[in-house]
Computed example of a mutant assay.
Amino acid sequence: MDGEGIPVTSETRDEDAVLAALRRTWQHLDPSPDGLVDGMIAAVASADLGREYALLVLVESDASGAVRGDADLLTMQFTDGATNVLVHVTAAERGERRLDGWVDGDAVEVRLEQEDVADVGAADEPERHVTERRAASDGGRFSFDAVRSGIARLRVVLAAPPQPGAATELLTPRFEI
C-alpha cells in the first residue's frame, strides 16, 4: 500500500507508479513547510548578487559625457559593500585610454574585460567576444595601458573574502570607456 491506502499491485509496479506512490507517502508523512520552495528559489537567486552586481558611482569628472568625448579624465567608484575600487580613465596616444585603479581589499589580480563586436551581416546579429587582460595588484594599485574605447568591466580577484561569507571576486557593472 502507498501512503494514501492505495494498494500497489504487480500491474502498477512499473517505475513511474512506484515513484509516484513513494512521493505521495512522503508528502503525507513529512510535508514540505509552507514557503520552502519560494524561499529556496529566492535564496539561490540572491546568493551571488554581491558578486554579480556592484554599485557604480560617478565620483567626479570634468566630463559631461563619456571619456571618448572632449574630456580628459573620468573617475568612477565601484563597491559591493565590502570592497571598494576607484578607477581613473585618462586619454592616451592614438585615441587609446589609460586606466589606473586602486582596490582597498587584498587584491591578487584585476582583469579588464572588453567586448569585441564583429559584424556578421545585416540579417544576422553581431557576434560578441570578450577580450580579457590581466594586471597584478601592487598594494591595491593596478593599471592598464593602451585601452581602446568601448564597453568594459573589471573583475577584481581577492586573496581572501573581506568578511566571513563574502565573495572573493568583485565584478563591476559594464561601463563605457
Rank of each mutant, 00 (worst) to 15 (best):
D2I: 00
D2P: 00
D2W: 00
E4Y: 05
I6A: 06
I6L: 07
V8I: 08
T9C: 00
S10C: 07
D16G: 13
D16S: 14
D16Q: 14
D16W: 15
A17Q: 06
V18F: 04
L19Y: 14
A21R: 03
L22M: 11
L22I: 13
R23G: 11
R23A: 14
Q27T: 14
Q27M: 10
Q27R: 11
H28Q: 10
L29T: 15
D30C: 10
D30K: 06
P31L: 06
D34S: 15
V37I: 15
A42V: 15
V44P: 06
A45K: 08
A45V: 10
A47H: 12
D48P: 05
Y53F: 12
L55G: 08
V57H: 03
V57K: 03
V57R: 03
V57Q: 03
L58D: 15
G65A: 08
R68A: 07
R68K: 09
G69I: 03
D70M: 10
A71K: 01
L73N: 05
L73F: 07
L74K: 04
T75L: 02
T75W: 02
M76D: 05
M76T: 13
Q77A: 14
F78S: 01
F78T: 01
T79L: 01
D80V: 03
D80C: 04
A82I: 11
A82T: 15
A82S: 09
A82G: 05
L86K: 11
L86E: 13
L86Q: 12
L86Y: 11
V89N: 07
T90E: 03
T90W: 00
E93G: 08
E93I: 03
R94A: 11
R94D: 12
G95Q: 03
G95A: 02
R97Q: 10
R97F: 15
R97S: 13
D100K: 04
V103G: 05
V103W: 01
G105C: 10
R111A: 06
L112H: 02
D116Q: 12
V120P: 04
A122Q: 14
A122H: 11
P126Q: 07
E127A: 06
E127I: 05
E132Y: 05
R133T: 08
R134A: 14
A136L: 09
A136W: 05
S137M: 00
D138M: 04
D138F: 06
R141H: 08
F142H: 00
F142C: 00
S143Q: 10
S143D: 13
F144Y: 01
F144P: 05
F144Q: 02
V147Q: 01
S149G: 15
G150M: 03
I151Y: 13
A152L: 13
R153S: 08
L154S: 02
R155I: 12
V157M: 08
L158G: 13
A160F: 06
A160T: 14
P161K: 01
Q163T: 15
Q163L: 12
Q163F: 11
G165E: 10
L171W: 15
T172K: 00
T172H: 01
T172D: 01
P173G: 13
R174Y: 12
R174S: 12
R174F: 10
E176F: 14
I177E: 09
I177T: 12
